[in-house]
């Protein structure tokens, strides 16, 4: 009986060690070669784009992240390439619009805005009206979210423009976003929800002149 227990213990210890080592090996594979699950052709193309981004001084993290996201979502190699290429293109366009001093976060947020249909010229204009060195990251995140939720692109862009001119801070943009999101979930028309909530912002952030093309809520409802 005693020998049997000893033998069982040895077998168990051996198997535990093996299982743990296998788990550790899996982690090392994932962390050491994150793109290892891509097929060779896709991987080569993705790495070329990563190199291209590095050479251009663009943040390449979003490209690698997009490839890993595609792997996680079981996308085809072709779809992954298309998605990564689009990220690279929008990052380039974002830097052209915001200038060489834009931070990596601003570029990433601006790339998102471009993907929802905001033009490079609009981004340039937003960058020009901001207060001093204020980061555009949060305003652009809110802008992309609003358009994604159904707010008309022009209305969203002009509203963000107006708030930037009024010196709105990140918390103002986030507060606006939360209110509009709640209204949209409750069934309010997205454009109307935005315009209604803008009117409720503190006067200090509405100091900028009304943005051309933004209709008052009453008119928008009709």
């Amino acid at each position: 009986m005693k020998n049997s227990l000893i033998r069982s213990g040895i077998v168990a210890a051996t198997l535990i060690a093996g299982a743990t080592l296998l788990g550790a090996q899996d982690v090392r594979d994932r962390s050491g070669d994150p793109l290892g699950k891509l097929d060779p052709q896709t991987r080569y193309a993705v790495e070329l784009m990563l190199d291209s981004a590095k050479l251009a001084g663009l943040p390449y993290g979003p490209l690698e992240s997009k490839a890993l996201e595609g792997i996680s979502k079981r996308a085809s190699g072709r779809d992954i390439l298309v998605a990564v290429r689009r990220v690279l293109r929008t990052l380039r366009d974002a830097r052209s619009a915001l200038g060489p001093l834009a931070s990596a976060d601003e570029l990433t947020a601006a790339a998102g805005a471009l993907r929802v249909g905001i033009s490079g010229a609009e981004l340039t204009h937003l960058a020009s009206v901001r207060d001093g060195k204020m980061s555009l990251t949060v305003p652009l995140i809110v802008l992309s979210d609003l358009v994604t939720r159904g707010v008309p692109r022009d209305t969203a862009s002009l509203t963000i423009n107006q708030l930037l001119r009024g010196g709105a801070a990140d918390d103002d943009f986030l507060g606006l976003w939360r209110s509009v999101e709640r209204d949209i979930v409750s069934g309010t028309d997205p454009g109307v929800a935005l315009l209604n909530r803008v009117r409720q912002l503190p006067p200090r952030v509405q100091a900028g002149p009304p943005a051309a093309g933004v209709r008052p809520p009453e008119e928008a409802k009709s």
Partner: peptide, 9 residues
């Protein structure tokens, strides 16, 4: 806040 379409649906 939502990010734009991720390219994978």
């Amino acid at each position: 806040p939502m990010a734009p379409d991720d390219g994978f649906g």
